[in-house]
Design a protein around this nucleic acid. Structure first.
Lengths: 352, 352
DNA sequence: GAACCTCGTCGAAGCGTTTCGACGAAGCGA
DNA sequence: TCGCTTCGTCGAAACGCTTCGACGAGGTTC
């Protein structure tokens, strides 16, 4: 383990000169720089992260705080992580993933106060999220993936749920569907103030109303059984339904199973669109699901970029950005077999 | 940000005394300890992780190195992570997840040499894994989840593939199945020396042979399409097959789709067992899959415990442990409708 | 009662960086 | 030529902690 001292001695310069070569905080002549670089190479020198952190009061570590609950990361969340890690690496930071759930707020407070994290990206943000308060009190720079209710003082990147839902509905309506049911997360999740669930609910209502259609939403537990139950409820509320739009990635497999069980084929009897879904998951189903693909890795990347920009050049600007999901048409949507009576709008009347 | 100085001053003791209270490295009288503790509480003191790391030459950070590839973490890998994170927290360490894939060996070398990681847990180990060499050269304590080919000098925790496969086969044979096909990972994965694929292949051969049965293995691409192709190949090689055992969690959805497409019902025409699978994924299918549930979080926990034990008390003992997956019977296995002719062994002849 | 421990505490020397003030050596305008 | 910057470098003081040697005070042991 060579230290800066060793490098300085070998290069016959002072320690500070070596430091300046490394950090570029002061100009160094080309000749000296070369001597130092050569010495570093010869000694296989690596700066000690702890010493650097202590002296500079910046750890060059970023935290990605993700509540890792029982059911694990979907491919969407994984994409956040990989995107974020790659961006952090580019910016010269390390990324610490920390599974700080709702419960251990003290853990979080400790983590934040230990000066080990230069900044933090928060995932799975609730509309009212105590973690935000804790981190702000600890003075840790913060970027959210997702949004709290009051976004006026925070930087965030989030999915543009409004546009995503609008596009999904437009796709179905364009195919001729009139009775579309939206399967959301559970009632409990809605009640807990989970942003995506609430925002998509509102967006769905708006989009359907805009088409002159009746918005029917079902809250489903996050399980295959929940999906099955949701489909039963959907048929009860909307017997003529020809399409299902589902936010609940887990429930959707139950929905598909239940449709098969009722002898209904996808997409001919019922079309299915999965929202905020990764291609990997969409391909698991048979037929592969038409889905709104989440911009997962882009979200992670942008969040980290916003954070590092804030850390490296202390701009006080907030970064607030929404990214829509992209419609990827696969095998689970088609024109309805018996298109509902056209009650308004110029929807096509093909299909049979 | 109160420092140790502040605490010492307020408690009217020396800085070193405060340190001893914190670390317990020297005895401190109860009276003094109380004074110090009170001062800490009053100042809301949090030790500075960087300073501590520099002085003690231990960062109290552990790395979990996981190759995060395109298709993301399954619930199984996620369980590793949560188990490891929880155990690390208990042992007073932080966990850094680092997406160090195969390519960036230099990144890894840098990470290891910066003295930022006290120790490392390596996931998704190949039989010949360069990362192991790099870390050993850098002198970083190491525990594997998985195994390299030569395990003589390394600590590891891994799934007991041999027993897992044996149990799965025994379950199917016990139900009366004789023609069982094993769907493994892809040929490319096998060729790359991926331990689980190779070990399960051998274990399957051994288990089937032990029952006097013919082992048929199919290598399937990690996709739904790969699963469909695999099933076709399986029927080509073993037309009488009544059961499928699948290691390939992704392919299994294709297999199920293809079975449905052929009008074969699960489990009555064909039984399906999924290996090394999380309950969450098993429940996604309809019917829910009988599966060998991987001891995911236990693996992560045990790996971290072995690592911290090694770090805190420098035992030179290696920790080498295998954990079997647990058979969880759900809806995808049953006695075959027409059990194959009993050719040997005392299998029951019920079912019809 | 001398010699020797052990216990609890202190002061000071690091740990390996960054960063600040200083200072010759040039370079430049007047 | 004189004062003035600017450039490149140096030495030393942090940064906030751990850890080592030392040292009184109080017990034991013979």
């Amino acid at each position: 383990m060579a230290t800066m001292q060793d490098v300085a001695r070998l290069a016959q310069v002072s320690v500070s000169t070596v430091s300046y070569v490394l950090t570029g905080t002061r100009p160094i002549s080309q000749a000296t720089r070369n001597k130092v670089l050569a010495a570093m190479a010869e000694l296989d020198y690596q700066p000690n992260a702890m010493a650097r952190g202590l002296a500079s009061r910046r750890s060059r570590i970023l935290g990605l705080l993700m509540p890792m609950d029982e059911r694990g990361l979907g491919a969407t969340e994984t994409a956040f992580v990989t995107g974020a890690a790659a961006a952090a690496s580019v910016a010269g930071y390390h990324l610490v993933l920390s599974p700080v759930g709702g419960g251990n707020l003290d853990d979080l407070r400790r983590l934040a106060s230990q000066r080990m994290l230069d900044g933090v990206v928060l995932m799975e943000v609730q509309l009212a999220d105590e973690r935000v308060t804790v981190l702000q009190e600890a003075g840790v720079p913060l970027v959210l993936i997702g949004r709290t209710g009051d976004t006026s003082t925070l930087s965030y990147v989030d999915i543009d749920f409004d546009q995503t839902v609008r596009e999904a509905v437009a796709h179905l309506v364009g195919l001729g569907h009139r009775q579309i049911v939206y399967v959301n997360h559970s009632a409990a999740t809605l009640a807990s103030g989970y942003g995506p669930a609430l925002r998509t609910r509102d967006a769905f209502t708006a989009a359907m109303t805009g088409h002159g259609l009746d918005p029917v939403m079902i809250a489903a537990e996050d399980s295959a059984a929940g999906g099955r139950a949701a489909l039963a409820a959907a048929f009860a509320q909307a017997p003529e339904l020809t399409a299902v739009l589902a936010m609940n990635e887990t429930a959707i497999f139950g929905i598909l199973g239940e449709l098969a069980g009722r002898g209904l084929s996808v997409p001919h009897d019922v079309s299915v669109v999965s929202m905020v879904t990764s291609p990997q998951v969409a391909e698991l189903a048979t037929p592969a699901l038409t889905a709104m693909t989440s911009p997962g890795s882009a979200l992670g990347r942008i969040a980290i970029e916003a954070l590092t920009r804030h850390l490296d050049g202390p701009t006080d600007l907030l970064h607030q950005q929404l990214l829509p999901c992209a419609l990827e048409i696969r095998g689970s949507t088609a024109a309805p077999r018996r298109p509902a009576l056209v009650t308004s709008g110029p929807s096509s009347s093909d299909g049979g």
